[in-house]
Write a protein that binds this DNA or RNA. Structure first.
Lengths: 211, 211
DNA sequence: CTTTGTGCTAACAATATTGTTAATCATTAT
DNA sequence: ATAATGATTAACAATATTGTTAGCACAAAG
């Protein structure tokens, strides 16, 4: 037959299709019928497994917020390294993460904007991690500054700078492609260049480049 | 009666309501019935004046793309000033513009993502202006660099930096409010601080701060 | 006064979208 | 073998959403 999906993978197929649709079109743009069709099942199955569109969406959003938490948590780990290496790894790791999940920023911004209720989940899962990252970074900056190795700057601003710079190329992807289309060799080359540039911008701001 | 809108302002009322709805909820999230209700008219009037939801949306999007063009065009004007002042005015002007139109970036990113057809309008209206801004800036940077007044940097990267840094606080507004909620005195104070910080970041990158 | 045109309303229509349900199928346990 | 349980389907139902249409009101022009 044409179906290798015998028994229990239906739920997974729906989840995969739903993830793609929700990330691509957002909550209001995604249609349960379209999701079911993309998954290759009748739309009744979607309701059978997830009851409502909302419940299905919750699953996807929670999963995405978890991913967001993971990347932040990963940055905290590299505490043993000197500040410069921590920053390079952190910034490039963050950039690569977004490159691997290019639709994630727009999705999160959109859905948190239209459903302020979800902010509770952020408040208790993301905010503490963000605070840990910032406190960690601020301590390292302060210590380096005491030794005359870098400027004294607000870690909150640095984190905001990094996220701003790294996210933009993916948010504005269509705009950049058409506006700078001919000005860069390829999309991959541009992204690699931009990643290095963002690292340079931050190190530069801290005056950590020449030590 | 309760309607001071006698004859010909109905069209304007619909446009205003449509602008709010489309910017807030996007094309798929906005509903013609809701727009009509917000405008205080029957939804038949919406079709009477604009035929379809698409046509109405086109009007709003075109209007917003025009606004986007205006701000870029405005930046080109200040050619007589020295580079430092041009940058400060350009960055702060751009920041203030977004602060006055905080929903615009998300709207543009979203709708251009879901309707790649619209990119033609961008290609012929926005891209040339962007190119003018960049060429202009690059010339000024090169000239200052020749005189040893600043570093030699790619103007495309600088423009991308500015837009990235300025847009983020408004895109991530709900996230920032909850994550940094208690860490800043007020939203206004934070925005003012962030604006100055972005100017500093760019001047710093060019090494234009101490001349 | 009538005619004409425009703005407007209410009701209708068509389709899209989400959700439900009764019946069927397959698999496993008894 | 049979009962039971869970997965699946097709059909139905309810509401939402977009769009249309016939006619009314009213002002301006003849």
């Amino acid at each position: 037959m044409d179906r290798a999906n015998n028994q229990r993978d239906t739920e997974a197929l729906i989840l995969q299709a739903a993830e793609r649709e929700f990330l691509e079109k957002g909550y209001t743009g995604a249609k349960t019928t379209s999701i079911a069709e993309a998954a290759g099942v009748t739309h009744a199955m979607l309701h059978y497994y997830f009851r409502t569109k909302d419940k299905l969406f919750e699953k996807i959003l929670a999963d995405k917020l978890d991913k967001l938490g993971e990347i932040m948590f990963g940055v905290i780990g590299n505490t043993g390294l000197p500040l410069r290496e921590r920053l390079v790894q952190g910034i490039e790791g963050h950039f690569d993460f977004i490159a691997a999940n290019p639709l994630l920023p727009r999705f999160v911004f959109n859905e948190l904007h239209s459903l302020p209720d979800r902010l509770e989940a952020v408040k208790y899962k993301i905010a503490p991690l963000a605070k840990a990252v910032i406190d960690n970074l601020q301590a390292a900056i302060d210590e380096n500054n005491r030794r005359g190795k870098c400027r004294h700057v607000d870690a909150r601003m640095i984190v905001m700078d990094i996220v701003s710079l790294n996210i933009f190329p993916f948010l504005a992807n269509p705009l950049i492609s058409t506006t700078f289309g001919t000005l860069f060799e390829s999309r991959e080359a541009f992204l690699e260049m931009r990643k290095k540039e963002n690292v340079r911008t931050i190190l530069d701001k801290l005056r950590l480049d020449y030590e």
